[in-house]
Design a protein around this nucleic acid. Structure first.
Lengths: 319, 319
DNA sequence: CTGAAAGCGCTTACAG
DNA sequence: CTGAAAGCGCTTACAG
């Protein structure tokens, strides 16, 4: 920077003003000389020095509850894109469903002086808002936040999604519609389950199934139901992971989807379009959620309603 | 840091030595006082200042050819874990199959002073080694690197993987085995295809299929083959994405896998275990590849042979 | 509109 | 074994 200033016959202050377009004006002629000198010397500002001095790094930390899960992966991708468009770099971390690992990542990201934190939390994660606030770093949860968390949470209209799925299956003539939830369904899945429950009729408990949000567990579950001759005629799964496991277990058990088992999933990740058969889903508005979260983290006053998850009709429902 | 030094009755130099366990020794008693003072004050070293001074940030840049693709996502996850174990933070970027975006990401990561660059490149990406070398930053390619790239490339033993798949299908009695490659198959897929070709018999061209590495394209391809009554009896797909698209298109066309179409995929991502039917695969050693790459980026002299992709027998082959 | 200079929070030669 | 001090490359109040 000193070299550039010297070559342009000015001071480092002025070089800074032209490189950053401010905070003070620079005469057009001086500006030209600085730009020319910078180009000739191949000068690139050192972000680290800038960060130390200005206390802003241009880096945002993104923490995922479970990065192998394509739903989170897809959400992460949209957050990355939104951040990239705002010229922010993203530091990524996978909490692997561990509150301890999540806290550790927050600590490390804070030490790295991130400008903001975007967290896709999981059931049971603790609220890290106090840590972030102590460091003066804004934070926002996406899809799922801790119970009683103080930071804002961006999620889709999960109630509406579940209602759409129930109605569509009713339209196919199904009166009894089962629901596959998580083992401990707090947060967004809990809201999906509650919305289904309100429409499920007399004895929802008899129709409520539970398993972890993994293909393997759903696969095992449906095989066991097949063995017991207890496969429901219509099923809504809380997540795509579960729906995909159901499909694979049903195939292995000789249960035909959708003829013997009509299925709708409530995530609608890209995977759901190319299963056998293709899944009918309510598609979570991941892009809108990511945009909303990024907007919010830079402008706490920003407000937008929860985006809806449109019904995408494919084959697994019987259409 | 000055506060800690004052409280411990010593200098900032000594505080630095104890926080970093070096480079100089500190008397045990002094060390204790510093640690106590740091704990009482809740002192956390500022990584940015440390980076400015020591010219090492503890951050590694990871660039992915296409982050929505689960194969790359899975590879990324292993790289992240390996880096996390070495106490490195990871800056992530998605090139989206664009050489231009890849170059831009490298520029930004270099400006952010990353200590190293790990790149999962795509067909046709240009070599960014000169950029990295100019900045004195080590770089390693994983899975796929540019043609004639100067940096090291870590990949699996792709030739062996394709051979295993051919042999297994032969064992099922298939003499004519088709191969689904990419549209322009350089790099690892090219090596898989070449290994198959060497074993394919008289007229490999008649058995060579091509489409992009996406579910959608493979889905369309198999439907068209079904319409033309030209579905092969046995098929090896270069990637899981393609295999999954084949499965979904075959289902839609009423072609039974494995009875009418035996299938083996050469990626073996976690997804492949829960398709309908479950895919027989050669499982790419992603974890070993990630470890190897991370090892290599910190120690250019490190050497290990290409890891093999074991055959994982499930249902799609006919077993 | 511009310059000289302080200071961000560290690390590390230098001197003792 | 320890301390005083320079300096990493910037930004920005201060003074003109």
């Amino acid at each position: 920077m000193a070299d550039v200033a010297r070559r342009a016959g000015t001071s480092t202050a002025v070089v800074s003003y032209v490189m950053n377009d401010g905070p003070r004006a620079v005469a057009a002629a001086t500006r030209e000389r600085v730009l020319a000198a910078a180009a000739e010397l191949g000068y690139r500002p050192n972000r680290i020095a800038r960060a130390l001095r200005s206390r802003t790094t241009g880096v945002v930390g993104l923490i995922l509850a479970d990065s192998p899960n394509p739903y989170f992966g897809d959400l992460a991708r949209h957050v990355e894109r939104a951040l990239d468009e705002r010229d922010r770099l993203v530091l990524i971390g996978n909490a692997g469903y561990s509150a301890e690992r999540q806290r550790r990542l927050v600590d490390r990201f804070l030490a790295a002086q991130v400008d903001a934190l975007v967290i896709v939390s999981a059931d049971g994660g603790e609220d890290v808002t106090p840590q972030a606030e102590a460091a003066g770093v804004p934070i926002v949860y996406v899809h799922h936040g801790p119970d009683g968390g103080r930071a804002p949470l961006v999620e889709a209209d999960n109630q509406h999604a579940a209602q759409e799925a129930v109605e569509h299956l009713r339209g196919h003539g199904h009166a009894r519609i089962a629901f596959l939830s998580g083992t401990h369904d707090g947060g967004p899945v809990g809201r999906r389950r509650a919305a289904w429950q309100a429409l499920a009729g007399d004895d929802p408990d008899a129709l409520l199934l539970r398993c972890a949000y993994t293909r393997a567990d759903a696969d095992v579950l449906i095989r066991r139901l097949a063995d017991d001759d207890a496969v429901p005629r219509a099923l809504i799964t809380a997540t795509d992971e579960q729906a995909i496991g159901i499909l694979s277990g049903a195939w292995a058990s000789g249960i035909a989807v959708p003829d013997e088992l009509a299925l709708i999933s409530l995530d609608g990740t890209p995977e759901s379009a190319h299963t056998a058969p293709a899944l009918t889903v309510t598609r979570q508005p991941l892009r809108a959620m990511a945009e909303h979260a990024v907007e919010l983290v830079f402008d706490p006053a920003f407000h937008a309603p929860a985006a809806r998850a449109p019904l995408v009709v494919r084959r697994s429902c019987g259409c």
